[in-house]
Design a protein around this nucleic acid. Structure first.
Lengths: 148, 148
DNA sequence: ACCCCAATCTTGAATGATTCCAGAAAGGAT
DNA sequence: ATCCTTTCTGGAATCATTCAAGATTGGGGT
């Protein structure tokens, strides 16, 4: 059966018309293993794999991946930008108010959720981004069993 | 008839248990007149009204207002924090991809739109924030009639 | 296999929004 | 009018992100 972790990063890059470089492959691999990572986390994972890589390079790679649609950038209020490889299905996210953990949520309303704004004020709308806010299981448990 | 612009800022502050200060009154007034303003815009309006007021004071006031629920802070990806006085009705926003203009959108699904996540991953969800992305009427018009 | 050039990465500094801090000023309860 | 606490001022620090200039490198062409 197909692997669950990631499609071949090299093939993804080639198909997208991007040069295949070690930093790019490593970023894709990191994002496949840990979706919703911020730049620091991705940079750390990439360096664990390759050794020294500039933070700027990680920003550049993420921008390139995002521009060709291989990655998606999300920016929940209060956190730095997060990135994921799951793309093109307009799914949404739940964010933990306490620890910032993020999980994917398929929209309950099919592929174009809530796209029907009651009054669009003349805007031509092309996307409805939904962010659910709440408390993740871990933080809920911790709240019940305080350590101190 | 009730005034459309704003409830009495002084009464709002008193009812919320906040001290009544000139910067706070001015911020509330500014937000009533121009919702979805960022800190710079609010600070400018406040200074037009009062003269010198520190930027820090504006940040402090906005934090205080937000904490007691008099104001709401939104953070569309790509822009600085925006503030509005309309609060407690879980309405949403349309954001122009080009100029950043923001307009309010009542949710089509009643008071708790999309709150039913298909799979909540064990999160206890308390809010569904919806951001519609598109092009505002002004930018659409400009695109049709380029000036150069 | 080798060249070459544009695309990419490195290093270092700049920017912008926001927060932190310590002291001065000013609400408002008594 | 007084006093204490909250709020405002001024200045610096922080964090994420971007800008810029030069060194490196992927990969198509020969």
């Amino acid at each position: 059966m197909g692997m669950l972790v990631a499609e071949d990063p090299i093939a993804l890059l080639r198909d997208a018309g991007l040069r295949v470089t070690r930093p790019r492959v490593a970023v894709i691999t990191a994002l496949s293993k840990a979706p919703h990572s911020d730049v620091d986390r991705i940079a750390a994972d990439v360096r664990a794999e390759l050794g020294a890589v500039s933070t700027q390079a990680v920003y550049d790679v993420l921008r390139a991946l995002t521009e060709v649609g291989l990655a998606r950038r999300i920016e929940p209020a209060g956190s730095a930008a997060l990135f994921e490889m799951r793309v093109g299905d307009n799914h949404h996210h739940v964010v933990c108010r306490q620890c910032g953990a993020v999980a994917d949520v398929d929209c309950a309303h099919g592929s174009a959720p809530c796209l029907t704004a009651s009054d669009d004020h003349g805007f031509v709308i092309d996307e409805a981004e939904v962010t659910y806010w709440g408390i993740c299981p871990d933080c809920a448990t911790t709240a019940l069993h305080p350590s101190s």
